[in-house]
Design a protein around this nucleic acid. Structure first.
Length: 861
RNA sequence: GCCCGCGUGGUGGAAUGGUAGACACAGGGGACUUAAAAUCCCCAGGCUUCGGCCGUGCGGGUUCGAGUCCCGCCGCGGGUACCA
C-alpha cells in the first residue's frame, strides 16, 4: 500500500484545481454569493507564520462556503506602498519598485504551494499604476464633493537629515538615523473630512451585529463623543487682539473649583505672547521639540509656564485665574484651551501642586467619613458620573445629585446666564493624508502661481511615479523626498491656465490604499475605480478577517471611505458599511532578539541566527543577546518565523492543519514549532486508515454500522458548528476523536467507506490536498472541492440516555445515568438514594434539591 | 498616561453560569521487532490518613453552583492618528 506523500499529491491537486478553474469567482444567478477577505499583506519579503495562519482561516471559510453552495469571492493582493521599501533602498541601494515587486513575486511563490483557494486572476498591488490611478480619480471626486481640504499640521522634523519622520522613527525624541533632536514643524497638508462623519460613524456601530464588541468599543472610544460647555474667560489686560480665552470643558459642574486656565503651546495666544517673552519662547520651543504622538505627550512630565496673564471667572468677576501654557494640552482637541479643576482631575491636581495653585473641592462623597479632600492632601476625587455626590459648590442644583445631573444643570444654567453654550464634540480628528515621501500614490493636484491649487485633469491619470532621474535610477541615499528634488517630474502645465506649474510632491498615506482595495477586488481591472454592477453583486464583504491591531485606524478609515465612495457614485448604498462580519484573529508572537551597535542603537537578529541555552540567547559568535519575551511578529524587529521549512519538511496540509489546531483563532499565540511533526503523523494515519478502508470488502454489521454512522453524524454536526463559528481548533479536536472512532470501528465496509468519505470532506477545508486524494481513493465523485457539504441527520444525534453529575453543595460527588426523558421526580428519588448523597445527608433531609434537566443535579445539605 | 484585550497541568489549550483539564504535544509504561524506525495499547493536575482536601494570575463579592458575572489589584499584549 502506498504511503502518504504530500510532495506528490499537493502539486497534483493544485494543478487539477487550476485547470478546472475551481476558485475563479463567477457571477451566476442560481447561487448566493459569499465574499471572504483576509487583510492583504504588506510585501515585506517573505511570508511568515502569521500570514499562514491568517490566510488558512480565510481559506477554510471560503472552501466551506463553496461546499455549501455559494459563489465565493476570495481574492488576494498586496498593500505595497510604504516606508520599508524606501528604507531598504536607503540601506542597500536599489529601487523601492524593484524591491517591492521582487518581494511580491517571492511571496506569491510561497503562498501558491499552500493551496489556498484564491482567485489569483484578481490579484493586484496598490503600487500598480492601474490601481493608484483609480485612487487618484477617487481623490479628485472627493475633492469635488468637498471631502478633502488643506490646512496646517505638525510633523516630526529631523533637522540633520532634513526630512519628515514617522512616529516610529523617533526614538527618545531623536531621529533614528541621524540621532538629532527632533523638532515639530508645521506644514500645509491635505486632509479628509472624516470628522464630519463622527456622529454617523459612531451611531452606525450599533448596526454592526457581527463585529466583535471590543472593536466597536475601541472605535466608539476613539471617536470619543462628549457633551460639554464651550465658553470664554475674559482676559484682564490681554495682548493686542486677545480679549478672551475660549475653552471647552466636559465638566462644567466643576467650574466653581476652577484654579487655572491652560492653553496649548500651539495656541494662537501662546504664539503671540512668545514674541515678547524669551522665557515663554524657550518653553514653547521645548514643548515643540517633543514628538507628535499622543503617547509621548501623555507620558511626558506635565509642565506649565505662567504667562502672567489673568482671566476673570465668569460668575465672579473679582475672581482672577492665572493663564498657563501647558505641554499636555492639544491644539487639535476642543479649543486648545481648558480650565483646570485640580480637586476632580488627577492631572490638574498634579499640575496645581507643582505650581502651588489653589485646590477647592466642588463636591464630596455622600458619606464623607474617611474621605480626605484633595485640598487636605487627598487624591483627586473622581467618582463615576452616575454616582450621587454631595455638592459643596454648585450653581443651582440639588445638594445631592449625580455628576450627569449636575453637568446638565450646569450647562442649562450657563446658557441661561449667557456664559457659553452646551456643545457636542468629538475626539476624532480629520485624517491627514499627506506624506513627504516618494513611495506612495501621488496626490493629483498642481500648484500654479496664477490659479493656486488646481486638480489634475482626469485624462492625465495616472500621475505615475518617476522611476529615474535623467536615466539613472532615483538615488535614495540622499535624505528627503526624491519627488521634491526631481529635475523634471515636478514640472508640468497648469491644467487650468496652461502656464508652467509644479506638481504636488506629497504622496498619500498608505491607509488610503487599504481603504478601498476590498471594493476594487470586485472589478480589479475596471477603467473606473469600481464597476457598479460588479460591486452591487459582490459587496459587501461577508466575512473580513484580520488582526486586532487594525481595530481602529484601518477599519474606521475604510468605513469613512465606503461612505465617501457611495457619495461619489462608486459604491451602492448598502456598502456604506462594507464589512458585514469581522473576525479579528490573534497575533502570532515571538521573542525579539536584540543587541546594540557602537552608538547604542538597537540591532535585531532573526531567531534562526540565535541559539538559546539555559534561558539565555547568544549569537553564533557567542555574543549574548537581549530577549524581549513576546511581541507581534514584525519584519523590522526580525522576530519572524519562516513557515517554509515546515512546508518543505511536511507539506502544506500539515502546515495548514497545524496552524489551526491547538489554539483558538482569536487568541495570540507564542510561536513554537513543537508538534508540527505530530500533525504530520496524524495526517499520515488518516491516509493509512482510509487506504485500508478503501481496500476493504466486508458485509454489513448491523449495530456496529449504526454506531459508526451515529458518530459520523455527530462529527458532521460538531465540525460544521466549529467551522461556522471560527472554532477551528474545536473542529480539529473533534476530527481527532472521530478518526479514532473510525479506526476502532468493527463496522462493515460500506459504512466505513461512507464514514471515511465524510471524514475526508470534513477535513477538506483544512487539508484540501489530502482530502482530494482520499476522496479519489474512496470512490468519491469528481473533486471533493465541488462536493456538497454533508448534512447531519438530526435523528442520529439524539441519545436515549443521559449522564447527570450529582453535586453536593456544588461539588461533584457522583453521577447517575438515566433515560433522557425521565421525569424530575424520578430523578430526585434516584439522586436521594445515591450512595454519596446518603453519606452527605447522614440521615438528615436536604435543604434544597436543584435539578437542571439533562444537565446536572445539586443537593444542598 | 489613556483606550481595548488576555492570564487554566510540564506545554498548546477545552469547558451555553452546571462533571475544570476535552483534544493534542512533551513524558512514563507496555505490545510488536534480533534490534531500531514506524505502528498499536495503557498511565498521567497537586496533596492524601484513600474518607477526602486543594487547585483556572492575586484579594474580595454575587449565586444552590463561578475559569465564566461584579469590584479592587498584579503581570503581559495590542492601539495611541506618519509602522502596516
Amino acid at each position: 500500500m502506498s504511503r502518504y506523500a504530500p510532495a506528490e499529491i499537493e502539486p497534483k491537486w493544485q494543478k487539477a484545481w487550476e485547470e478546472a478553474g475551481t476558485f475563479r469567482a463567477t457571477r451566476t444567478e442560481d447561487k448566493p454569493k459569499y465574499y471572504v477577505l483576509e487583510m492583504f499583506p504588506y510585501p515585506s519579503g517573505r511570508i511568515h507564520i502569521g500570514h499562514v495562519r491568517n490566510y488558512t482561516m480565510g481559506d477554510v471559510i471560503a472552501r466551506h462556503k463553496r461546499a455549501t453552495g455559494h459563489n465565493v469571492l476570495h481574492p488576494m493582493g498586496f498593500d505595497a506602498f510604504g516606508m520599508p521599501a524606501e528604507n531598504a533602498a536607503m540601506a542597500s541601494g536599489g529601487h523601492p519598485k524593484d524591491w517591492t515587486y521582487g518581494n511580491i513575486d517571492t511571496m506569491v511563490a510561497q503562498m501558491k504551494p499552500l493551496g489556498f483557494g484564491l482567485d489569483w486572476s484578481r490579484m493586484f498591488a496598490t503600487c500598480d499604476p492601474e490601481y493608484y490611478g483609480q485612487q487618484q480619480a477617487l481623490f479628485l471626486d472627493f475633492l469635488e464633493k468637498g471631502l478633502v481640504y488643506r490646512k496646517n499640521a505638525v510633523v516630526n522634523w529631523d533637522p540633520v537629515d532634513m526630512t519628515v519622520l514617522a512616529n516610529e522613527q523617533v526614538e527618545n525624541g531623536r531621529g533614528w538615523r541621524s540621532g538629532a533632536l527632533v523638532e515639530r514643524r508645521e506644514l500645509t497638508q491635505w486632509f479628509f473630512r472624516i470628522s464630519d462623519y463622527s456622529g454617523e460613524l459612531l451611531e452606525a456601530l450599533d448596526g454592526l451585529d457581527n463585529w466583535p464588541a471590543k472593536v466597536k468599543l475601541m472605535q466608539a472610544n476613539w471617536i470619543g463623543q462628549s457633551r460639554g460647555l464651550q465658553f470664554a474667560f475674559s482676559l484682564v489686560d490681554g495682548p493686542e487682539g486677545h480679549d478672551r480665552v475660549e475653552v471647552y470643558t466636559t465638566r462644567p459642574d466643576t467650574l466653581m473649583g476652577a484654579s487655572f486656565v491652560g492653553i496649548s503651546p500651539d495656541h494662537p495666544l501662546a504664539k503671540q505672547l512668545e514674541a515678547d517673552n524669551e522665557d515663554l519662547a524657550a518653553f514653547n520651543a521645548e514643548c515643540r521639540r517633543m514628538g507628535t504622538s499622543e503617547e509621548e505627550l501623555e507620558k511626558a512630565e506635565k509642565r506649565g509656564f505662567d504667562t502672567g496673564l489673568r482671566v476673570r471667572h465668569p460668575f465672579d468677576t473679582a475672581w482672577e485665574l492665572p493663564v498657563y501654557v501647558a505641554n499636555f494640552i492639544l491644539m487639535d482637541y476642543g479649543t486648545g484651551a481648558i480650565f483646570g479643576c485640580p480637586a476632580h482631575d488627577p492631572r490638574d491636581l498634579e499640575f496645581a501642586r507643582k505650581y502651588d495653585l489653589p485646590v477647592a473641592s466642588t463636591f464630596e462623597p455622600l458619606n464623607p467619613e474617611g474621605h480626605i479632600r484633595p485640598e487636605d492632601g487627598g487624591e483627586a476625587f473622581v467618582p463615576p458620573k452616575s454616582d450621587k455626590v454631595r455638592w459643596i459648590k454648585s450653581f443651582d442644583w440639588d445638594e445631592a445629585a449625580t455628576g450627569e445631573q449636575a453637568i446638565d444643570a450646569a450647562i442649562a444654567f450657563c446658557e441661561s446666564n449667557g456664559v457659553g453654550q452646551g456643545v457636542t464634540k468629538y475626539r476624532l480628528r480629520d485624517w491627514g493624508l499627506s506624506r513627504q515621501r516618494y513611495w506612495g500614490c501621488p496626490i493629483p493636484v498642481v500648484h500654479c502661481e496664477a490659479c493656486g491649487v488646481v486638480p489634475e485633469k482626469r485624462e492625465n491619470l495616472p500621475i505615475a511615479l518617476p522611476y529615474d532621474e535623467d536615466g539613472t535610477p532615483i538615488d535614495f541615499s540622499v535624505p528627503g523626498n526624491p519627488l521634491d528634488r526631481h529635475p523634471t517630474w515636478r514640472d508640468c502645465d497648469c491644467p487650468s491656465c496652461g502656464k508652467p506649474a509644479r506638481r504636488e510632491t506629497d504622496t498619500m498615506d498608505t491607509f488610503v490604499d487599504s481603504s478601498w482595495y476590498f471594493a476594487r477586488f470586485t472589478a480589479p481591472h475596471a477603467t473606473t475605480p469600481t464597476d457598479m454592477e460588479e460591486a452591487a453583486y459582490w459587496m459587501n464583504v461577508d466575512q473580513y478577517i484580520g488582526g486586532i491591531e487594525h481595530a481602529i485606524l484601518h477599519l474606521l478609515y475604510s468605513r469613512f471611505f465606503a461612505r465617501a465612495m457611495h457619495l461619489t457614485g462608486h459604491l451602492p448604498e448598502k456598502s456604506i458599511e462594507p464589512f458585514d462580519a469581522l473576525f479579528t484573529q490573534g497575533m502570532v508572537t515571538h521573542a525579539i532578539y536584540q543587541t546594540q551597535d557602537a552608538e547604542g542603537r538597537k540591532v535585531y537578529h532573526f531567531p534562526e541566527d540565535v541559539e538559546t541555552r539555559d534561558g539565555k540567547a547568544f549569537l553564533k559568535d557567542g555574543t549574548e543577546v537581549e530577549i524581549v519575551p513576546s511581541a507581534k511578529m514584525s519584519k523590522s524587529k526580525k522576530n519572524v518565523v519562516d513557515p517554509m521549512t515546515i512546508i518543505s519538511d511536511y507539506g502544506a496540509d500539515t502546515a495548514r492543519w497545524f496552524v489551526l489546531s491547538d489554539s483558538p483563532p482569536e487568541r495570540d499565540v507564542e510561536w513554537t514549532a513543537a508538534g508540527a511533526e505530530a500533525a504530520s503523523k496524524h495526517l499520515a494515519r488518516v491516509y493509512r486508515i482510509c487506504a485500508e478502508i478503501a481496500a476493504l470488502d466486508t458485509a454489513p454489521q448491523g449495530d456496529e454500522d449504526t454506531a459508526l454512522l451515529r458518530e459520523m453524524h455527530k462529527a458532521i454536526h460538531d465540525v460544521t458548528m466549529g467551522l461556522e463559528s471560527f472554532g477551528f481548533n474545536a473542529s480539529i479536536a473533534r476530527l481527532y476523536a472521530f478518526t479514532a472512532t473510525l479506526q476502532k470501528s468493527k463496522a462493515g465496509s460500506d459504512a466505513k467507506k461512507q464514514a471515511a468519505r465524510t471524514l475526508a470532506q470534513l477535513m477538506s477545508p483544512m487539508t484540501p490536498h489530502l482530502s482530494e486524494e482520499l476522496w479519489e481513493l474512496l470512490g468519491g465523485e469528481g473533486l471533493i472541492a465541488n462536493a456538497t457539504w454533508p448534512k447531519a441527520d438530526a435523528a442520529m444525534l439524539v441519545e436515549d440516555t443521559v449522564t447527570l453529575p450529582i453535586q453536593v453543595n456544588g461539588k461533584r460527588r457522583g453521577e447517575i445515568t438515566v433515560a433522557r426523558d425521565l421525569g424530575k421526580e424520578e430523578v430526585e428519588n434516584l439522586v436521594l438514594e445515591h450512595e454519596a448523597v446518603q453519606r452527605a445527608l447522614d440521615g438528615g433531609q436536604p435543604k434544597k434539591l436543584i435539578v437542571v434537566p439533562g444537565r446536572i443535579v445539586n443537593v444542598v445539605v
